[in-house]
Design a protein around this nucleic acid. Sequence first.
RNA 1: GGGUAGGUUGAGCAGGUGGUGAGCUCCGCUGACUGUAGAUCAGCCGUCUUCGACUGUGGGGGUUCGAUUCCCUCCCUGCCCA
Length: 388
Amino acid sequence: MSPAPASFEVLVPPPADGATRARLGRLSVTHGVVDTPQFMPVGTNATVKALHPDDLDEVGASIILANTYHLYLRPGHERIERLGGLHRFMGWDRPILTDSGGFQVVSLGDLRVVDDDGVTFRSHIDGSLHRFTPEHAIDVQQALGSDVAVAFDQPVRPGSSSRADVAEATERTHRWAERSLAAHTRPDQAIFGIVQGGLEPDLRADSTRFIASLPFDGICLGGLAGDETADERNAALDIAMPVLDGDPRVRYLMGLGSPLDMLEAVHRGVDLFDSVLPARVARTGQVWVPEGRLNLRNQRFLDDGEPIQDGCPCLACRRFSRAYLAHLFRAKELLAYRLATCHNLTFTLDFMTRIRSALSAGTFPGMLPELRSRASRISAGEAAVQSA
RNA sequence: GGGUAGGUUGAGCAGGUGGUGAGCUCCGCUGACUGUAGAUCAGCCGUCUUCGACUGUGGGGGUUCGAUUCCCUCCCUGCCCA
């Protein structure tokens, strides 16, 4: 009898007064333990862009996300399996969650056609035709050997989809969830199901109920980090999360990554996040600090001898100045991408640590205004930071 | 000294052989990015009162209704020969 592929324990439940649904938890999977609320850096191609696995350790990552669609196309899931599985292949022996490729259903735009049985993709690499069904998406993830597989789904862009389109995609996602579950057999791998429903209150609630009724190891909330406003997204969470009250499983909001967005979602009961945002903006020169955000490509940093963030323990701040980073970005030196990514992931994961600390101390509702204030400075795009 | 090819908006170019040169790529200045077709993309990049207008083809002069183009002269640069 093999151990359960995933278990989730609520260490500090939300207060009974209903002030918040935020909770402290611990997700255990085959390759390790993940304290929640937690953020997963995204490593689409079996690498978090610009980082070495040691960098991931240092920024405090405990679980990362990799992408099924990308690894299926290149280098091929069977090759990775032959080489000992994804963990060994990429030199990361801690938890990995694989996205099913469902997101590419929307992100690939006109390169794909969806039908009830699955999706036909055209490779963005060489234009070749491929087909994903729920069964195939699960097969690929089982070959990769991630700690957590995710059901194949059809996300919809909330802002640009009719109610009928949302309803159809959501219904299809439900059928695919059942098929994904039925196809999943790997005993050392957990599987999460994905809720859709767009921004339609009844569809979102129905979808949450339906996915929660299936024996998944965790519940993903999909279709939400798109073009909707924060208010719309929070309203959708206010619909979905009460449905999950009393459900013992981990809740994962897919695609969210700004501190303020994550804070609001934690407040509504979400445990887990992933996003390319901190790493992507870092690669284009934007770094996050408590006072707001800085664009290191701006002229004003060329003579700024201060670290990005005073006291920050990251690889960049321990040793280098903003001026040096500004120079590296202008020169397009590769070190720029690594240093900036380390900083933003350190900042992001530290923010989650602050949230967990508040939850652990039982002070979360009281600290919410302070956390909100800190997080909103990033979202506001203010860069009101003293330059040397 | 002789010959030759050139001098276009920060740089590099395109174009233009008598009648609309503000077009490209860099550089530069900003902004965007949320389950990564992204070390990417977008805007700006002569001046102004910016849905437009004006100025600008090394300097000066000439021919002409009109010159970046033709002529004269000077300056500068590359190459070849002495």
